[in-house]
Design a protein around this nucleic acid. Structure first.
Length: 595
RNA sequence: GUCCCGGUAGGGUAGCGGACAUCCUGUGGGCUUGCGGAGCCCGCGACCCGGGUUCAAAUCCCGGCCGGGACACCA
């Protein structure tokens, strides 16, 4: 990864407006290279506004450009703010600004009007459609990259290897991997990491359990076997069957480096991780590396030393070390009284290491928020950039509450199995007569995973969510299958066509232009979402684009259209296919050619 | 108890300073012999309560109420 540039003090992430506005003199010149649809329109609007403000002799910061619901494609509310400064009415100012814009200088701006305080910009739909379609013909599914750059280390999932992933981890993984895909699409260099505890009490219990009771070998996934051993060891300790000091003995032995013990821990972790990896694979969730906590044991001393210099470290009477962090009530334990290191201090060391390689983003459940705040504050005190946090709330199931210790949780595997089974039912019902069993099986797997991912992607992470299997897999609602089906329709049409799609927008009516406009918004959506670290608007976009396509499908015949419009409409369908496919992939929703 | 996050039509959800609040579901009506209708169109229905800030508040601030989470020498 590249070194962070020194002048980039605000972090590695560029602020908005990464695309230079085209120069007013030659708006068309560079656009073929850098054109990015609606994003380019936005750039032109900003450039036009600056020019007009200049002409009016107004100086201001911030253009207050927003996307209104329907009055225009983009609008500025600047006149409202300027009104009191200039002592004139917003309506008057908006009229003057609009009058000063020379729309003819901007290829994508059709007209500008001042309406009671708003400066309304209307895109030239035909031109926007033409340039968007041309761009897509050149880059295909690569369409949608807004050209941001920077290095990011993204940490997500990071579940402890004492059992399989459950639905909470699933949300974390879905949000995290969506973010990974989004940031990569936006242009960032992303290194995705799974950080796991390989040395704590929980692992000691697993190792102990395996030693005493053995690993159940009933052909199930290894992480599920580990969960059973863990639960058994837990209750054995609780009712005294296993003495508590056995556990601390193991922990001490581990820290002392007793070979057998270290090996037992390693074995326990590896077995469980194997199962977890299998689940992540099935979900299409990709990590670049798995980072074990124990790697940072040796760095703890220097972390504590640096915190000492910041004068926040206190020793308890019994020898434990804690940090009193300013602004945080709860003290942070750095080292136990027996001298062994605790999770948080290693986590700080891990973040120090990450921060050396790029900007860091952590995706975590809200139950870890306090811990993360403490780590962030500690990092700040020792002069290290703290991670950005993407926090998600809990997932519940209609069934009721879950507990890993009691074994009353629903695993990610079970949820995915159920989703697949339901999807299979739907596919069999609709296509049982024409497709082979294998084919339906394949489609059901893809639809099942997609349905779960889409359902969890579309809700803002800070909202608690109840997973509704029925709604997720429903083929007749606007969920993953709805989007996938629209994609399959595009593919079906293109496959049947025996002529080449072309870019020819002159015959497009309202419906076609509306659809092309929606297509052109992808780079704009990707840029905004990447900078906001949000994936749920991408899900909205998928649904909106699929809906626009369905309206088009209803209104405009393609294959049996008149000669002169057929190839042009095929071009539009091809563009939709690329944009829809590209945006679905951002969420891990699989584009299927047929379903 | 203290801190954090939510509270938008019957249920779910988007918007989080700007123009008549998005979409799904529900419910009532309509289209359709189709490029796979797994679709499309129309109607009904909502910003938790009270103050404040602002030209403008669902959106910001304060105070309630309700729901979830956190507050380990666990991770």
């Amino acid at each position: 990864m590249n070194e962070k540039s020194p002048e980039d003090s605000s972090g590695v992430f560029p602020q908005k407006v990464p695309v230079e506005p085209s120069s007013p003199e030659s708006p068309d010149k560079k656009t073929s290279e850098r054109f990015s649809g609606f994003l380019e329109f936005e750039s032109q609007v900003e450039a036009a506004l600056r020019e007009a403000l200049d002409e009016c002799g107004v100086e201001t910061e911030g253009l207050q450009v927003e996307e209104p619901r329907e009055a225009a494609d983009l609008a500025s509310t600047l006149p409202f703010r300027l009104a009191s400064e200039l002592g004139r009415s917003p309506a008057e100012i908006s009229g003057e600004i609009a009058g000063s814009v020379d729309a003819a200088h901007f290829s994508l701006i059709e007209r500008v009007e001042g309406v009671s305080g708003y400066v309304n910009f209307h895109a030239d739909g035909g031109q926007l459609a033409r340039e968007t379609l041309e761009r897509i013909m050149a880059v295909g599914r690569g369409f949608g990259t807004p050209g941001l750059e920077g290095d990011v280390i993204l940490e997500h999932t990071s579940a402890n290897p004492n059992g399989p992933l459950h639905v909470g981890h699933l949300r974390n993984a879905v949000v995290g991997d969506g973010l990974r895909r989004l940031l990569v699409k936006a242009g960032f260099d992303v290194d995705t990491q799974y950080y796991f505890n390989d040395a704590g009490r929980q692992i000691a219990l697993v190792a102990l359990g395996i030693e005493r009771f053995g690993l159940p070998s009933d052909g199930g996934k290894p992480d599920h076997a580990v969960a059973r051993v863990y639960a058994r060891a837990n209750s054995a300790v609780e009712d005294g069957e296993l003495p508590e000091d056995e556990v601390s003995r193991l922990l001490t032995e581990y820290e002392e480096g007793v070979e057998e013990t270290v090996e037992a821990f390693r074995e326990a972790v590896e077995v469980c991780l194997e199962g977890i990896r299998e689940t992540l694979d099935r979900l299409g969730v990709v990590h670049d590396s798995f980072v074990e906590e124990s790697r940072f044991v040796d760095d703890v001393d220097s972390v504590i030393e640096r915190l000492r210099e910041a004068e926040v470290v206190e020793a308890e009477e019994n020898g434990a070390l804690v940090a009193q962090l300013p602004g945080i009530e709860k003290e942070l334990v750095l080292r136990r009284s027996d001298g062994t290191s605790v999770y948080s201090s290693k986590d700080i060391a891990y973040h120090v290491w990450k921060a050396e390689h790029g900007g860091t983003i952590d995706v975590l459940g809200s139950d870890h928020k306090l811990q993360a705040q403490q780590v962030g504050k500690a990092l700040e005190l020792i002069g290290v950039e703290p991670p950005e946090l993407v926090v998600h709330e809990f997932v519940s199931l209609p069934g009721g509450s879950m507990s890993t210790r009691r074994g009353t949780f629903v695993s990610a595997d079970e949820l995915l199995d159920e989703a697949k089974e339901r999807a299979l039912g739907e596919v069999e019902e609709r296509r049982g007569g024409e497709l082979s069993g294998d084919e339906m099986e394949r489609i059901a797997s893809a639809v099942g995973v997609s349905a779960v991912r889409f359902f969890m992607s579309r809700v803002a992470p800070q909202k608690p969510m109840e997973f509704d299997m029925e709604a997720a897999v429903d083929f007749e609602r606007q969920g993953a299958p709805f989007v996938q089906y629209a994609y399959a329709r595009c593919s079906g049409i293109l496959e049947k066509a025996d002529e080449e799609p072309v870019v020819e927008v002159s015959g497009f009516g309202e419906t076609e232009l509306a659809l092309a406009l929606q297509v052109s918004r992808l780079p704009y959506v990707v840029r905004n979402c990447a900078l906001d670290r949000e994936i749920h608007p991408v899900a909205e976009y998928c649904v909106d684009l699929a809906s626009s396509f369905n309206e088009f499908y209803r209104d405009c015949r393609v294959l049996d259209a008149p000669e002169e419009t057929r190839a042009a409409r095929l071009g539009l369908v091809e563009a939709v296919r690329a944009a829809l496919g590209g945006s679905m992939e951002l969420l891990g929703v699989e584009p299927l050619e047929s379903m």
